[in-house]
Write a protein that binds this DNA or RNA. Structure first.
Lengths: 202, 202, 202, 202
DNA sequence: GATGAATGAGTCTTCATTCAT
DNA sequence: GATGAATGAAGACTCATTCAT
């Protein structure tokens, strides 16, 4: 049971996953070749193939990225009990740090595949749902705590948050907006729909 | 004297542009082959090349799509004088009709290229700016007309509109939301930041 | 009978011949395309084809170059009566002026085709023969005039002249030797086999 | 343990080089296709490419041919101590055996590329220089040994030898002269400039 | 498990050539 | 006579994939 050099096939697959991620960021989905992954992983293309075909590998990477993105955000919200902190943390955690934010880029590199691949679409759908769920529960909680005054169904507002975020992410990745600008914009929206100003001290 | 097939190089190029569009919708940017365009246009691959290389052709198509999308929306706003009508028209015109909305899909198919191609990024940037400009001026006008009560800088609100719209478009294209739902969501946002309910009769 | 614009097909063909020549110098035999000739001639490729296929066109050009090269040299020899002058003129006329000497380059661009094309080989053979004939008769004359003292059959010496010249031409075209150096070398050979120093004043 | 087919990449590359040579002789530089090499080597075109692109392969072949030609000749001269033997051996070794002399043909097939490719020109230049060096040192030695009486600088005579040889090679390759004729001619030149008759017994 | 050589399918691209106008 | 659009054949080249070692 003693793991030898990282622990066999499982570990190797994980290493490969990381390689796929790096390669995907460098080359994009369009133009990603087996060789890119192989070079990133320091093995031969044939060796990469040994662990599964390109599509599966990429799909897995996407899946992982979604999982990580969602979890990180969920944890970011869980870290606090006050809904205002939760919302602040939630927003701050979701917005990409800049055009090189690996996780976010991964998500958007892959996105167009959703238009043609049902499995990819399903993953993307789940991603969105999880984001909405986070925002939604924060809003409900904030209302219960008496911090937020809300006029629309929480789920609608939450969806708006996520959509706006999504739209802005693309601009951050394209280098047209900074993370700070986007956060400001999201705070403005938050104030408009909750009546609470996140930028103020509590 | 009537030209047999629309007449002249210009026309042929336009036909080809349409073929590129159709092919792009069918095959996506990734996986678009010369042959796909050729088949759509009813000619041989070599004939396609006769009018420019693949990249140029696709770029042109994107450029055209952006232009058309922007113009249609600008005209949609111009059609009215009351800012409330303008805003309603503007929102209605921007949201895709469904997963098969050709123009919108084109825009999003091409988007990932912005991450690696500066020229594409420039086009996309211009697209966003034009949308923001439309929303922005509608908001300013609405304020002047006394219909809207606005708490944030118009440009910020406009950017929010555009970002939210962008995020929702992806969901419409993915088939996860209907046009109607998105419009409802945008109306909700509009009410929150302008104080005016677009869904009510004026 | 009045020639219109240069005089019809014949003239057009001649113009085309000049274009082939220029194109050949720019692109080389390997890599010469119909389009190159067309551009040089200011017409479309199809128009070039109208006057004969590529091979024929090039062959003709080669033939013409050979003819011109030979004639010029023969005339150069004919211009004098004294064999010493003839020899000097002959040598001076044959050596390329430099890497850009059009006529000479043409001859050597085309040469490799002789290895595979019998018609080309025949032309090249004739070229060599004519050069040998010129040198040969000059040598014979010089002997008769008492200027040259010759130990070998004139035809052998003449062939040597031509071979040496040929070898040196390639070096001039390659830019490795100047015309002056080559002439010096040929004069040295001339002195060695005729006993007469062409570099001295008569 | 004996390797099945010569063993290792080096060997395979050498086999490929030989295939390039054969293909080059059959098809010429102009008209040499990847497929020709592949067929000569008994593999697929893609396999040829695996070892480098066409240009590199051909260039290498040329380089090798030059090296072999030069070395053989240098060794031919080294085999003797008497300058008269050296000169005889040198001449005999350089002249092609006939139109099918592979090594010589290779050299002349490739030559025209020198007009446009600086790297090729450099190789060709080196080739000429090495030939001149061989002849030059033989002449100097012969003078020192008292066998040759020389009127011109050895380097000039050597260059003349090489140029004449070059010119004659083309005629041998074109099938217009036999090796024997050319040797006779070169002997005649040798006698004229050294005073020694190579055709006589020592 | 992994490699390197090799393959074969598929793509772009070039180019002479054709043909209606 | 000449053009421009279009073709089709042929080429290089890329790349996932295979397979013996």
């Amino acid at each position: 049971m003693a793991a030898k050099k990282g622990g066999g096939k499982e570990a190797r697959r994980a290493e490969l996953g990381a390689a796929v991620q790096r390669a995907l960021l460098v080359r994009g989905l369009e133009g990603l070749r087996l060789r890119d992954i192989a070079e990133e992983a320091g093995v031969t293309p044939a060796a990469v193939l040994y662990y599964g075909d390109l599509d599966a590998l990429v799909h897995e990477t996407y899946q992982l990225a979604i999982e990580r993105y969602s979890q990180e955000r969920e944890q970011a919200a869980d870290r606090f009990t006050d809904a205002r902190d939760k919302l602040r943390s939630c927003i701050g955690n979701g917005v990409a740090s800049g055009p090189d934010d690996a996780l976010t880029r991964l998500l958007y590199e892959y996105w167009p595949r959703c238009l043609r691949d049902a499995r990819a679409a399903a993953l993307d759908s789940a991603l969105t749902e999880r984001q909405i769920a986070v925002y939604s529960s924060v809003l409900v909680l904030g209302q219960a705590q008496g911090h937020f005054v809300i006029q629309d169904p929480p789920r609608l507002l939450a969806a708006n948050f996520v959509a706006m975020e999504d739209g802005y992410q693309m601009e951050v990745l394209a280098g047209r907006r900074t993370r700070a600008e986007v956060i400001t914009a999201l705070y403005a929206y938050a104030r408009a729909v909750t009546g609470h100003d996140l930028a103020g001290q509590h």
